[in-house]
Simulated scan of single mutants.
Amino acid sequence: MDSMKGQGGIQMLLTAEQEAQQIVTAARNLKMTRLKQAKDEAEREVANYRSYMDTEYQNKISETSGSSGSTAKQLEAETDKKIKNLKETSSRVSPEVVGMLIKYVTTVKT
């Protein structure tokens, strides 16, 4: 009778082990499924963010390139004005500077 009881206990242990193995396998499968879903969600979010940032970048590029022609013309006009002012100032001061240089070069200190 004890051997029957022992056989029943072993059978119960084997059944419990099989059930535990099935539970562990189901949990692993569920975990893998959830990880795959999380990965897919993350990839979608990255793609959406990349698309958004690319659109923003293209908008910035179009804003700056559209006005670059007028900006270049404005800078050119300002540069021409500054060059003209420098030439006028140098032509006004040039005789004084030349005279001062001649005076210092020809003066002998003793």
Rank of each mutant, 00 (worst) to 15 (best):
S65H: 03
Q11L: 13
Y49V: 00
E63V: 04
T64A: 10
R28V: 04
A16Y: 09
Y104P: 05
G99I: 02
L14C: 09
A42I: 06
D54K: 15
E88Y: 00
L14T: 06
L75K: 01
Y104S: 10
R34L: 12
L13P: 01
Y104Q: 12
N29V: 01
K87A: 12
I83M: 03
K103F: 07
G99A: 13
V46S: 06
S3I: 15
Q58P: 01
G9A: 14
E43F: 08
G6S: 13
N59A: 13
M53V: 12
M53G: 02
L35N: 04
S3M: 15
S67P: 01
Q58M: 11
K5M: 11
T107H: 03
T107D: 02
G8I: 15
Q11R: 15
N85P: 00
M100C: 09
S90N: 11
A27T: 10
T15W: 13
D80P: 01
A38G: 00
N85G: 06
E19Q: 12
K5T: 08
E45T: 04
G8H: 14
G66D: 01
V105H: 02
D40G: 05
A42N: 09
K87H: 07
Q22H: 10
Q22N: 14
A27Q: 12
Q21Y: 09
E19Y: 09
T25C: 00
A42Q: 12
E41T: 08
L13F: 02
K82M: 03
K81E: 11
P95Q: 06
K73D: 04
K60Y: 07
